[in-house]
Design a protein around this nucleic acid. Structure first.
Lengths: 343, 343
DNA sequence: CGTCTTATTGTTATCGATATCAGTTGCGCT
DNA sequence: AGCGCAACTGATATCGATAACAATAAGACG
């Protein structure tokens, strides 16, 4: 029948001890003899007892929940970061509760407000740009807070990410070295993804250092394959025609690649294409995109480790900027010669 | 400073009423005059009071958490289903807590065991195949349970999904109609994804009904672009060479498409490619794959609505099988004529 | 052999809310 | 004026655990 779940009191009664002994025995806390601990553990197992987390968390004023906010799960990037965190966290007995903020800072702030009432063991936010009240609220909340994916000099608490501006700048220098001189940046409208704008700023700065101006094409709101395709179509119609298309990320870049192919524009023969993230779709493309490979799984793992350490009161390093490697497109080398000769 | 968060008692004291009045006022429960309710609400707002969910859930023996288990988040499919649920759930004031089981039934079972101690408002499982103890445990747990993505005649409670065997069967008939006679199924090893095996069963059955036998190629454990590519390479080496490659899903199918392209095998001129899911990568491909479009967002939304209704005690329909549409590859039509002429 | 540790176990208060039931108060009615 | 009922409001128990402290038992030691 619908037998009620066993409570700690039931186990205590069955074992003929007080509930405190059961509590101590099952948590592995000292204060019970090994003999009774064994007896209690066996009995609890047998009765199918699982402690009520709500009660336990309330009493301890802290739960085993790690609350994570990401902008979206549609982008494999955040799924991979979360995947990277997962093993370490679950190994430490922590559950993850995930929010997708859809790049909406107000929504993120409201979520933070709701989450703290769950007394999470730790809180993870994506990026370093938040609604003003968030930092204030969390700086003194008592739990470890980790800002992920972007880096800052003034983190709320812990911080693991990549320097998006530097990534953009590196890509710009890479493309300049290959001889590109008419770059266009293709992305969704600004205001949504601050990281993308930082990359653009770095990219534009790198080109500007060589006196090269960068064009911009902004497409529909959702960063999708289709957006990349549409952006590329519009970019190809520009005069003068760009010699390299820099996309917000690999998704858009792939859409752009397809558009170029459809338009009969050879890649990278007559136009270069650069993305961002190093998604594994690139591994099977016959014309690989130039991209910046972000260490997503490692970033997640590092973040999780820092969090677990911080929960235990250990705080070795609080800021980690991870390296990003530029992966050249498969056939970008030939351009170098050709362009050096005829700039 | 690190001022403690306001508790209900603080609000009560400030308003000069009992904590019960505050509780009633803020929950919108009847039993307080509109005058005092207004005063309390304003004061709570001003003091930045947010009720402690742990305490509230413990007292009510039910939380506002909806626990969702999916096999993986790397596959956009489950991210989209969750996305579809999200709006409806958050509108109803529910938080979602997500687990990725990595297709491991034991892990799913352990998670269920842990989750029920959080007194979730509802529980969502992916698929209908579970460890034996799971159904037993949940059938009498008191909370709504929804099985997602697959359908069954004997659900634990609620069920929304698609009939994978029928999907496979439909695809088989579709491909037969186009004249294909040497099909090969390319997938990861069996035992991991029961849905994929059901689709295969349906597919093979459809071909068998026309006396056509189907080949099978099994590749590395992770269902990735690379797996599809590798599978296609192996399939192309078979004798006789298959005339159509049916992949586990669109990811593998895309990898396969790239492999064919690289091998100079024209698609769909000399070989057909079929995937599953109707991911939007297909929208930008210059050679569209044949695929079965699964209504992922709608499925999520439907599931969420059924759950919310069930929580309110309303139980209109408990089983929903959603339609799946076959989307023909862009240029499969010509094959029809050609193959009919020379079978 | 009595006292002092130390290990083990139990008792009571607490976490921050909600449920239940017991007062109050005000008002309509006869 | 007296009565009854409804609308508010509050006091107390409860949810199922943990924290802090008290009590008991078992050795150690002089």
């Amino acid at each position: 029948m619908a037998e009620k779940a066993a409570r700690i009191e039931d186990v205590a009664r069955a074992a003929g001890v007080s509930i405190m002994s059961v509590s101590r025995a099952l948590r592995g806390v000292e204060g019970v003899s090994e003999a009774t601990r064994g007896r209690i553990t066996a009995l609890a197992e047998e009765m199918g007892y699982t402690p009520n987390r709500l009660a336990g968390s309330l009493a301890q004023a802290t739960s085993n929940l790690v609350a994570i906010s990401v902008p979206t799960l549609f982008d494999a990037v955040f799924a991979e970061i979360i995947g990277g965190m997962r093993e370490t966290l679950s190994h430490a007995g922590l559950e993850t509760i995930i929010e997708t903020s859809d790049y909406d800072l107000a929504r993120e702030a409201a979520w933070v407000e709701r989450m703290v009432t769950w007394s999470p063991a730790a809180l993870v936010l994506s990026g370093i740009d938040h609604a003003p009240e968030v930092g204030e609220r969390l700086r003194w909340a008592g739990m470890p807070v980790l800002q992920l994916w972007d880096v800052t000099d003034d983190p709320i608490d812990l911080n693991v990410g990549i320097d998006h501006r530097a990534v953009g700048h590196d890509l710009g220098q890479h493309l300049l070295r290959l001889g590109y001189r008419t770059p266009v940046y293709i992305a969704t409208p600004p205001g949504r993804d601050p990281r993308a704008e930082k990359r653009l700023a770095g990219l534009a700065a790198a080109f500007a250092e060589d006196g090269v101006a960068m064009g911009e094409v902004r497409v529909s709101a959702a960063p999708s394959f289709e957006a990349g395709r549409d952006g590329a179509v519009r970019a190809l119609a520009l005069h003068p025609r760009p010699d390299v298309l820099c996309f917000l990320n690999d998704h858009l870049a792939f859409g752009g690649l397809m558009a170029c192919e459809a338009a009969g524009v050879s890649v990278p023969g007559s136009i270069g294409i650069a993305g961002f993230n190093g998604l594994n779709i690139n591994n099977v493309l016959n014309r690989r995109l130039t991209t910046s490979v972000t260490p997503r799984a490692l970033m997640g793992k590092t973040a999780a480790r820092m969090l677990v350490a911080a929960m235990r009161g250990v705080r070795v390093e609080t800021r980690v900027a991870m390296p990003v490697r530029i992966e050249p497109g498969q056939t970008t080398a030939p351009r170098l010669t050709r362009n050096r000769q005829s700039p």
